[in-house]
């Protein structure tokens, strides 16, 4: 039950002292070390992809433990200006905007390349309309539940059971770089 003790310690310290201000030695210090010593840069990766590729993309990214994202249905067009076609029986004229799926991931700097490789892998068909990926700088992130900032706001917390029964779901994922991602980066 060592883990439970830590949870309690950490929660107490957060409520009493606020996050990042724990001065207790030992276990508590070990817990808070990554909080104070790992300032990381955050990036927003914004991808606009074909709607039907969103499912496979999601599955692929779960293997990278990068399942946290925000997605929305959007309309868009690229240099092809939508679909150009002749009106005829059964076909309408030009379609100005095509439905797309826009997904935003907020990740730490070191995860960006693996994420982009995975997106390219699933979505690259070599045809017009495959979409775009943009990488944007981001100043900070806040986990509203705990008030954690920066990379800590994104990292899975070690003592927290992650819901879901799929084999792909991260179970007690360690903080920092997940194993699966390490392999991906190395490979």
């Amino acid at each position: 039950m060592e883990r439970d003790v830590n949870v309690e310690l950490r929660m107490t310290s957060e409520w009493e002292l606020g996050p990042r201000r724990s001065s207790a030695p030992g276990l508590l210090a070990a817990w808070s070390q990554p909080v104070t010593e790992r300032p990381t840069q955050l990036k927003e990766v914004l991808a606009i992809i074909r709607p039907e590729r969103w499912g496979p993309t999601k599955t692929r990214l779960q293997r990278l433990r990068l399942s946290a994202c925000t997605q929305s249905r959007v309309l868009g067009r690229g240099k092809g200006r939508g679909l150009r076609r002749e009106p005829g029986p059964g076909t309408s004229a030009d379609i100005r905007y095509l439905p797309k799926r826009m997904i935003s991931w907020i990740v730490e700097d070191q995860h960006v390349d693996a994420l982009i490789q995975a997106i390219l892998e699933v979505n690259q068909h070599g045809q017009l309309g495959d979409g775009k990926i943009f990488v944007l700088p981001l100043d900070d992130a806040v986990r509203i539940r705990t008030g954690e900032r920066g990379g800590d706001a994104l990292r899975a917390q070690p003592f927290e059971p992650v819901r879901g029964t799929s084999a792909d779901a991260p179970v007690n994922a360690a903080p920092g770089l997940p194993k699966a991602l390490l392999c991906q980066v190395a490979g």
Partner: peptide, 10 residues
């Protein structure tokens, strides 16, 4: 806002 990189997926 600034964009650091852009990828054409195709």
């Amino acid at each position: 806002s600034p964009v650091e990189a852009a990828y054409t997926i195709r």
